[in-house]
């Protein structure tokens, strides 16, 4: 562990120094780094079963191939990121196969069932846009060298997912009719999910260890704005209604509902007339969404039995 104090480390980072090894870190830095990497790794991993579920209804061989390519990329990104955690002294195998479903740190959006190929398309357009927004920030700003370098490949591949989502969203909306209606239905629950993805607004929570150590460079609200500034125009250009617009006076995107609001996962429906507190949101997240266990199980299902057999048990 570093002999530097936390303050000295922060100053060094402020001057643009990149941290390369655990020896240079303070306890606080390492803890914050592990936390942010775990969220990324778990998000990449849990997107795979969720996208797979949707890929099962792909309408052609080409679309199925694209979907599987996205799934493979996500598994690959998870692998890269768990490896970073292993380099920090965590046990990769335990992280993937040993934890309980509720211990995974993926956002609530990946605890939801993606039931159709159309939902996959919108997930690629909205959720992967959230992913790129969240990972583009550390790629530019992070003080942890190995993470920054790993994001070159990850961010480029995420761009392919995004393009996949956006191109199909446009094509299906141009086709109109049932295809467009399905996109609208998916957007209705997935857009507010994306808004929530970026967490608490800055006026409630501004200074975090992640910002102080420059693990990332932008605040929740700044990131949310970046996301909105991509997703709202995209949706509008497709003729898809989303509850947000650009406010000329404030020169930023604003939501057309009181944020945050209640969500009914069984109906996949946001209750825009039921604003809730952030404590209630955290409670919902903590309770986990309906597919948390199913997705984690799909990754862990065979590990224990197979390993036991391999090692001579039954």
């Amino acid at each position: 562990m570093a002999t530097l104090s936390d303050e000295a480390l922060k100053q060094k980072i402020e001057k643009g120094h990149l941290i390369e090894t655990t020896e240079e870190m303070t306890e606080g830095y390492k803890k914050a780094l592990i936390q942010i990497l775990l969220v990324q790794a778990d998000t990449e991993l849990m997107s795979a079963p969720s996208y797979y579920m949707a890929a099962r209804s792909a309408p052609s061989m080409n679309t199925r191939l694209s979907a599987y390519a996205v799934i493979q990329d996500e598994l690959g990104h998870a692998h890269i990121t768990y490896q970073l955690l292993e380099d920090l002294g965590m046990d990769k195998e335990y992280l993937i196969y040993g934890r309980k479903p509720h211990e995974f740190k993926n956002p609530y959006g990946f605890d939801q069932p993606l039931e159709t190929w159309v939902e996959l398309v919108v997930a690629n357009a909205y959720f992967d846009r959230a992913g790129i927004t969240l990972l583009g920030d550390p790629f530019e700003n992070t003080s942890y060298g190995p993470w920054k370098r790993s994001l070159v490949k990850i961010d480029k591949e995420e761009l392919f997912h995004l393009r996949h989502g956006e191109v199909w969203m446009k094509r299906l909306c141009e086709a109109g009719g049932q295809a467009k209606e399905e996109i609208q239905r998916a957007a209705d629950w997935m857009f507010p999910m994306g808004v929530e993805w970026f967490g608490m607004p800055d006026h409630l929570k501004r200074h975090t260890a992640q910002l102080e150590y420059k693990l990332k460079g932008k605040t929740n609200d700044e990131l949310r704005q970046i996301w909105l500034s991509a997703v709202v125009p995209l949706s509008e250009s497709c003729g898809i209604h989303v509850p947000a617009h650009f406010d000329e006076a404030q020169q930023e995107y604003v939501l057309d509902y009181e944020f945050p609001v209640d969500y009914d996962p069984s109906q996949k429906r946001w209750k825009f007339d039921s604003p809730v507190s952030w404590d209630q949101v955290f409670e919902r997240w903590k309770k986990r969404g309906p597919y948390n266990e199913i997705y984690v199980k799909s990754i862990q299902k065979h590990y224990k039995d197979f390993m036991a057999m391999l090692n001579g048990g039954n």
Partner: peptide, 14 residues
């Protein structure tokens, strides 16, 4: 997706 090691989940998808 649930191969006993993540590397093989990736390989299976490939």
């Amino acid at each position: 997706l649930g191969a006993p090691v993540l590397e093989s989940s990736i390989a299976a998808s490939a």
